[in-house]
Design a protein around this nucleic acid. Sequence first.
DNA 1: TTGATTCCCATAAAATCCCATGTTATACCA
DNA 2: TGGTATAACATGGGATTTTATGGGAATCAA
Lengths: 155, 155
Amino acid sequence: MRKTFLFMDTVINKVDAKGRVSLPSDYRAIVKETSSEIVCYRSLTSPCIEGCLEDLLDKLASDMENSLDFFSQEQDDLTNLVFGDAKRYPFDSTGRIMLSDKLLKHAGITDSAVFVGKGRKFQIWNPQNWEKEEARIRSEVLKKRPSLKNNREGE
Amino acid sequence: MRKTFLFMDTVINKVDAKGRVSLPSDYRAIVKETSSEIVCYRSLTSPCIEGCLEDLLDKLASDMENSLDFFSQEQDDLTNLVFGDAKRYPFDSTGRIMLSDKLLKHAGITDSAVFVGKGRKFQIWNPQNWEKEEARIRSEVLKKRPSLKNNREGE
DNA sequence: TTGATTCCCATAAAATCCCATGTTATACCA
DNA sequence: TGGTATAACATGGGATTTTATGGGAATCAA
């Protein structure tokens, strides 16, 4: 798997009447190294879509094979859910993918979508939901790292 | 990751009407070893922009993969925070990058920017803010090490 | 046929490239 | 050592390309 290619940044794109969304060009550039499609599935923990290169799921499958006790039964079940739900989404010459109703419904996405980089993965959110989620994460992180909070006082 | 290259020195450059800034040539020389882009993100602790090579974040991504579970909440939060905010900034043949509005706003940068070396990373500040920050850092250091202060008296 | 998906083209905005210029730093020579 | 030629750099502006997005025609499936 390529190492120096990470999904980054947060970009908002429109979902048109046909259900098409432009994949951010940075994301496309990563994918194009190997193919012209990404893999998406419903997040198990959040109301959002997750996406990645097929490579990543392949790595996950290998990890499961090679270290049986590395994953708990619970996580074993979770991976089953992921593989059962995942699907390839090719993008056309203009860089758009067409997300399924199942995914859009799960994320509550209608007319616009936010792409959030996560390194080897990325997520697609309903803009309002992402706004709330981002606020939650920031407060969560500050809670766990009070030293950070202190440094910011006075800004 | 290359070890013998560090971001150093403090240089001030103009930000033009299009939002372009010249990356200090010393910094470019470091990056050019491998690519022609840097990664920038909002500092978590200060009103400034932080920059580094993508290698550094890639290492972080790998560390997270190996130390945390694939599906853990903690990994989700951290990756969202870090990679959701970071972005690649390629520089053109004249060595300029175009910083996003989000970054410029966070650092309060309008028409000029100060690059401050920090070893593996560097920071970009609004000149006035950096002046204050540098003064704060110096007084902080003197407070904690009175012996230094005594030695320097008379200079 | 009907509904949906894919392909292709058009357009406006934004990002990028390229050339020109003044300035600073470096190299060279007397 | 001083002074000049040369190269490297920062910066401005215009031209070109990329990107996101809309809409229509062609293709496919039920």
